[in-house]
Amino acid sequence: MNKPHSNKAWFLVLPVFILVAFSAIVPLMTVVNYSLQDIFDVSTRYFVGTEWYREILNNSRLQDSLVRQFIFSGSVLLIEIPLGIGVALMMPKSGKWSVISLLILALPLLVPLNVVGTIWQIFGRADIGLFGWALNSLGIDYNYAANPIDAWLTVLLMDVWHWTSLVALLSFSGLRAIPDAYYQAASIDRASAWAVFRYIQLPKLKSVLLIGVLLRFMDSFMIYTEPFVLTGGGPGNSTTFLSQALTKMAVGQFDIGPAGAFSIIYFLIILLVSWLFYTAMTHSDNK
């Protein structure tokens, strides 16, 4: 890949640059300004230096929600990536059923985030929802509104329901790109199904899976609407993730200064993780 060098290409990128810069750079600079001050209103504000950062970094509630966030995003990846690959392997490769299952798989992805929350809010209730009713009649005491573990598991199950399809569709398109000759060679060698997966399919899936891991990690790391609708972050703080803690602080309590500092720290974590993933991705492409 030897692309010609031309700085004129900047003119083609300029509209995107201006558009995104308007919504990204100005707010980011403003957040930095907020984070350094104690703000009461536009004219009454005091410079406090790095005080808010110190407070946020030592705030145990926020540390808890950071840990909770990492556990949540980790479990999301651990469940959705293998399950997604599995579903993709089970899908018919071509024909009518392939298209039908593709369409059904894509369905949850198109449900608005708050409706996802609503669907599971209804589905999980013991009085009006099938899931909650079924669990309770099996003798399992399940109530996502009162029991932190149930709430946590419901949020996780909801995310699996909502997003595993994305991984499955990514892997499916990766699998379809493998030429038939590979499979024929494998069947001549009498390779086991596991060997076919390990040495033919998985290597081919690597680049799409990295996209999947990146998107899933990032989106679960900023999850807000679904748990907000389902549990409102409770019971207690058991399902309060970072975005919700931040929104509560910024919009609910209007603590602009600390919320600014929190935003910057949050953003830096995102920047670090997405840089690591992105570097891993581009380097696996080059090899």
Binding site: H5, S6, K8, V20, A24, M218, M222, T247, A250, I270
Partner: peptide, 27 residues
């Protein structure tokens, strides 16, 4: 094409896809 800062520009664009809307909510 390749142009000055192309890779960094691309990554910067992607970070906007990755950053939580909650971070920018107030401004």
């Amino acid at each position: 094409f390749r142009f000055i800062g192309d890779k960094h520009l691309f990554f910067w664009l992607l970070t906007n896809r990755m950053s939580p809307p909650a971070v920018f909510l107030l401004p």
